[in-house]
Design a protein around this nucleic acid. Sequence first.
DNA 1: GTGAAAGCGCTAACAG
DNA 2: CTGTTAGCGCTTTCAC
Lengths: 328, 328
Amino acid sequence: LISAATLAEVAEIAGVGQSTVSRVLRNHGSFSTSTRDKVLAAVSGLGYVPNRIAGSLASAGSRLVAIVVPSLSNIVFADLLTGASNALEQKGIQCVIGVTDYDAQREETLIASMLAWRPAAIMVAGLEHTEPSLRMLRVSGARVAELLDIDGEGVDLVVGFSNRAAGAASAQHLLSRGYRRIGYVGHDLERDKRAGKRYAAFRDTLLEAGFPLSDLQTAPAGSSVEVGRVGLEALLARSPRLDAVYFSNDDMAIGGYFHCLSRDISIPGELALFGYNGLNIATVAPQPLTTIRTPRTLVGKVGAELVISAAPAQTIDLGFELIVGATA
Amino acid sequence: LISAATLAEVAEIAGVGQSTVSRVLRNHGSFSTSTRDKVLAAVSGLGYVPNRIAGSLASAGSRLVAIVVPSLSNIVFADLLTGASNALEQKGIQCVIGVTDYDAQREETLIASMLAWRPAAIMVAGLEHTEPSLRMLRVSGARVAELLDIDGEGVDLVVGFSNRAAGAASAQHLLSRGYRRIGYVGHDLERDKRAGKRYAAFRDTLLEAGFPLSDLQTAPAGSSVEVGRVGLEALLARSPRLDAVYFSNDDMAIGGYFHCLSRDISIPGELALFGYNGLNIATVAPQPLTTIRTPRTLVGKVGAELVISAAPAQTIDLGFELIVGATA
DNA sequence: GTGAAAGCGCTAACAG
DNA sequence: CTGTTAGCGCTTTCAC
């Protein structure tokens, strides 16, 4: 950066002390109307923009919130960020974001480098982190919010919903509709811990009901429409008699839906489909997808508001909603 | 934040001077192996994390890049951010992001507050900004990259592709396939300037060819599958004899596709559909959408690399690719 | 190869 | 209501 005006220059031009300029600019403390006008005139004359780096150093409070998410291509996290960023922007807080690509090691590195900016708070996705990550989060002094999952132990604030409960509810819905030969199509559950929890609860619920999961097909890849389509194709090639399939999320389910369309598999007559997330596209399809809608944007908003507040450590369950569409 | 270890403490424990610790940590300047070991031991003993706020203040260089995008729900910007954030992360640079919601005023406010962090560079979407925004960008001293559009005058670096050319190419494709009664379904073109440019070029190209746009339907809303579906329905209600429709983007086009599916309108026989973006979902649909694929992630990557480099001001056209699918 | 000292631009007590 | 005075934690000459 080149020369930017400084507080000292503003003070000089306005003919007042630096602290006075500081007070006026932050509208904190007291000053006369006339000094305020002088200061403001000098500020706009110089095109002065306060240096927050210096401000943060001096006040030991950084108006910066770090947000670490696994991915941005997944709309879930984009929505989360939208909610959080709106809430933070309103408070004049900037957000620094990092993308882990579902890699716990990378998350650890990212957390370390974000902490170097001494953020007032840090928001991360999920409750599963490496030991060093957890240690850093605990000792950083920054407020911590873990989002989108409440099945487990949190460091400080936890805002989300139960992925286990969602998986179980999905299984129960399919069972209650009479489906018995149920399959699963998923993406990489090793990396996406929340999808893994949904799957586990789904499978266990079926098992307890006496109708164990018939077959499953997972791919060591991120979720996408394509992976869902290919996954369902592979699953049906192996287990053609399935009557329902649970997908790791809506993107995957839309892929499955596309497969059925192109093979003229009638839905839900021949095969029922169940997704997760409640994406717009899923609800607008010719046959709206039966799925679970999650309050992602709200999680971001509530998480952000809480994390910059003085609220005590707590877990907040924002719940989810089962949307009965036309596919199951 | 609470007490975090400081450079001074590390120096004390290691029994060396502060500047030595600083040199070791940044691996800059010279020091003996033994001092390095002492320093590193002290660092890990204390769990010391350098304070980048202080570092930036002292060195007047902030390893922070600001990125301002209109939206996150639009995959285009998510992809852009993914490309940029990967490239930046690799260089140990943090990105601060802001979302304007397609609002030029909000963009102006955001640019101002990001500049307060004295970022090394700032990346924004498009070339259209308010006068004050442009002024700030020009005098900030930060490197500037304007992304995703090259049709116009840039401040510094410009990386993207021509939206006008994309609109024209779409029109030419439809004309070359013999379509003559062509309609348009779009979202809010006032706010999404790039979609507006595509539309204008599309319309002009048709006009010049002697087959002016038959009808258009736009909604004062962001783009979505739903808006596309409803838009096509409205358009066809008014102009049932159209033989092709150009959509403002793939989300919208998928919505149109869904409408056709549910009304049994045969594609492309009765109606041809043309999108924009080349989203994964569009290429995996039972009938792959005819669309234009844009190198969004690459734009983010190239923009990021350039903006933190010493490259001279320039405009880089990364081009686009017309994907002939099954819908037009 | 290493340390001392002087800031970076601002905020936060304090006096006045 | 306003100015003076110390730093915040680090980088960076500049001697040694």
